[in-house]
Simulated scan of single mutants.
Amino acid sequence: MKKIKEVLVVEGKDDTKSINRAVNADTIETRGSAIDDDTLALIEKLADQRGVIIFTDPDFSGEKIRKIVAEAVPNAKHAFLPKAEGRPDKAGGSLGVEHASPEAIRAALDHVYTETTAAPTLITHEDLMAAGLIGGAGAKARREQLGELLQIGYVNGKQLEKRLRMFSIQPADFAAAVQQIRQKEDFHE
């Protein structure tokens, strides 16, 4: 079983159980989005000692936790679980790391990103418009697909350019993902 050096920041006990079925890793649980100061201080200490990977649910609460932890620990790494992999029935209901298969967890942890605050803008607002990712019919669905293909999670149109820059997504990777989305759309027409 693969050993993860960093400590994984997760939301709860069930996330820890699912992760332990997939990899050998230590976790720290936030116990929801109301992260107390003691937990945040512990995460900061662990980040200095071993590094941390934020691995929260692909939903609103998970993104809220990710932002809180990333603000406190700017050098944190990020792993993203695609929404489809976090649903037990793949059709709706609850959503989270606790429902992911060991394979999906390992895949997410194989594609870890580190935020780069001083990264140059590689993909512009105009690129996002031209790709149909902001402003227009179907943009939200395309952003969801893009987030899964690039394994950077889902963000709204206002945050997409920032997320692409933060994780230094290269124009070639962006273009390849957009091409896949377009091919899928052409196939379904």
Score class of each variant (00 low, 15 high):
Lys2Thr: 10
Lys2Asn: 11
Lys2Trp: 11
Ile4Phe: 05
Ile4Trp: 05
Lys5Pro: 08
Glu6Arg: 08
Leu8Trp: 02
Val9Ala: 00
Val9Pro: 00
Val10His: 01
Val10Tyr: 04
Glu11His: 00
Glu11Thr: 01
Gly12Trp: 00
Lys13Ala: 06
Lys13Ser: 05
Ala22Gly: 00
Asn24Ser: 12
Ala25Trp: 05
Asp26Arg: 13
Asp26Glu: 15
Thr27Cys: 04
Thr27Trp: 03
Glu29Tyr: 10
Arg31Ser: 14
Arg31Asp: 14
Ala34Met: 13
Ala34Leu: 12
Ala34Glu: 12
Ala34Tyr: 13
Asp36Gln: 14
Asp36Val: 15
Thr39Gln: 09
Leu40Pro: 05
Leu42Met: 15
Ile43His: 09
Glu44Pro: 14
Lys45His: 15
Lys45Tyr: 14
Leu46Pro: 12
Asp48Arg: 15
Asp48Asn: 15
Gln49Trp: 14
Gln49Ser: 15
Arg50Thr: 13
Gly51Leu: 10
Ile53Asp: 12
Ile53Gly: 12
Asp57Ser: 10
Asp59Pro: 14
Glu63Lys: 15
Lys67His: 15
Ile68Asp: 07
Ile68His: 05
Val69Leu: 10
Ala70Trp: 11
Glu71Ile: 11
Glu71Ala: 14
Glu71Lys: 14
Ala72Lys: 09
Asn75Thr: 14
Ala76Lys: 05
Lys77Ile: 12
Ala79Val: 09
Pro82Phe: 03
Pro82Gly: 03
Lys83Thr: 13
Ala84Thr: 06
Glu85Ile: 06
Glu85Arg: 07
Gly86Ser: 02
Arg87Ala: 08
Arg87Pro: 06
Asp89Met: 06
Lys90Met: 13
Ala91Ser: 14
Ala91His: 14
Gly92Arg: 05
Gly93Val: 02
Gly96Met: 08
Ser101Arg: 02
Glu103Leu: 15
Ile105His: 03
Arg106Gly: 09
Ala107Arg: 10
Ala107Trp: 05
Ala107Ser: 10
Leu109Trp: 07
Tyr113Val: 14
Thr114Lys: 11
Glu115Ile: 09
Glu115Trp: 09
Ala118Trp: 14
Pro120Arg: 13
Thr121Arg: 14
Thr121Glu: 13
Thr121Tyr: 13
Leu122Arg: 15
Leu122Tyr: 10
Ile123Thr: 04
Thr124Ser: 07
Thr124Met: 03
Asp127Asn: 03
Asp127Met: 00
Leu128Ile: 01
Leu128Ala: 02
Met129Arg: 06
Ile134Gly: 02
Gly135His: 11
Gly136Leu: 00
Gly138Phe: 00
Ala139Met: 02
Lys140Leu: 04
Lys140Thr: 03
Ala141Thr: 10
Ala141His: 09
Arg142Ser: 01
Arg142Met: 02
Glu144Val: 02
Gln145Phe: 02
Leu146Ser: 01
Gly147Asn: 01
Leu149Glu: 04
Leu149Ile: 06
Ile152Cys: 03
Val155Trp: 02
Val155Thr: 12
Gln159Cys: 07
Lys162Pro: 07
Arg165Lys: 11
Met166Arg: 12
Ser168Val: 08
Gln170Arg: 09
Gln170Ile: 09
Pro171Arg: 09
Phe174Trp: 07
Phe174Tyr: 07
Ala176Trp: 04
Ala177Glu: 03
Ala177Thr: 03
Gln179Leu: 03
Gln179Gly: 08
Gln179Tyr: 01
Asp186Val: 01
His188Asp: 10
Glu189Asn: 11
